[in-house]
């Protein structure tokens, strides 16, 4: 039952986002989502609880602003490196430890590393992210972690268990 309601809400929200706010669309979307939710709900294995909604809100209001800020910094940094005639780069591949266990958390962390200044995640192994770094600083894993993923690790660890 809980699965059915969750599926219904997710389908309806996506329908409204795509079709737009309009009385007929909302009613039709609701009907279609209800039918689909009855059919599909046997096969899904997630459900919305209060904690997930809270987590999503935290994700949007705590994580997204940090992410946007880092993304803008990343682009200015990249623009500087691309445009300066000497090309101040010192690239290398490093291993960064992480405490996040959950698959979705790992995905978000790897994506965040890719979109933050000068780093590109290559591979995720158990407890490690393999990162290509344009301008390597430091020489130990702890130093790498401090530079690359500390903020994200902390925020994501608080949201996704």
């Amino acid at each position: 039952m809980k699965k059915g309601i969750s599926t219904f809400l997710a389908l309806w929200a996506i329908w409204i986002l795509i079709a737009g706010f309009n009385v007929t669309e909302i009613i039709l979307g609701g009907a279609v989502a209800l039918i689909l939710a009855f059919i599909v709900s046997k096969y899904v294995n997630y459900s919305f609880g209060f904690s997930i909604v809270l987590g999503a809100l935290k994700f949007v209001f705590v994580y997204i602003p940090v992410f946007i800020y880092k993304l803008v910094i990343a682009n200015l940094d990249m623009a500087y490196r691309v445009l300066s005639p000497k090309m101040p780069i010192n690239p290398g591949i490093v291993k960064v430890p992480t405490e996040i266990k959950n698959d979705f958390g790992k995905l978000v962390l790897a994506n965040s590393i890719t979109l933050t200044p000068g780093t590109l995640s290559l591979d995720v192994e158990d407890g490690h992210v393999l990162v290509h770094w344009v301008n390597v600083k430091g020489s130990t894993e702890e130093e790498y972690k401090k530079e690359i993923s500390k903020d994200f690790d902390k925020i994501l660890g608080g949201i996704i268990k």
Partner: peptide, 16 residues
């Protein structure tokens, strides 16, 4: 100069 740095430049700039 190499493929990794090119991917980096491409990804960040195209995303933002």
């Amino acid at each position: 100069p190499d493929v990794f740095n090119r991917i980096q430049a491409g990804t960040k700039a195209t995303t933002l």
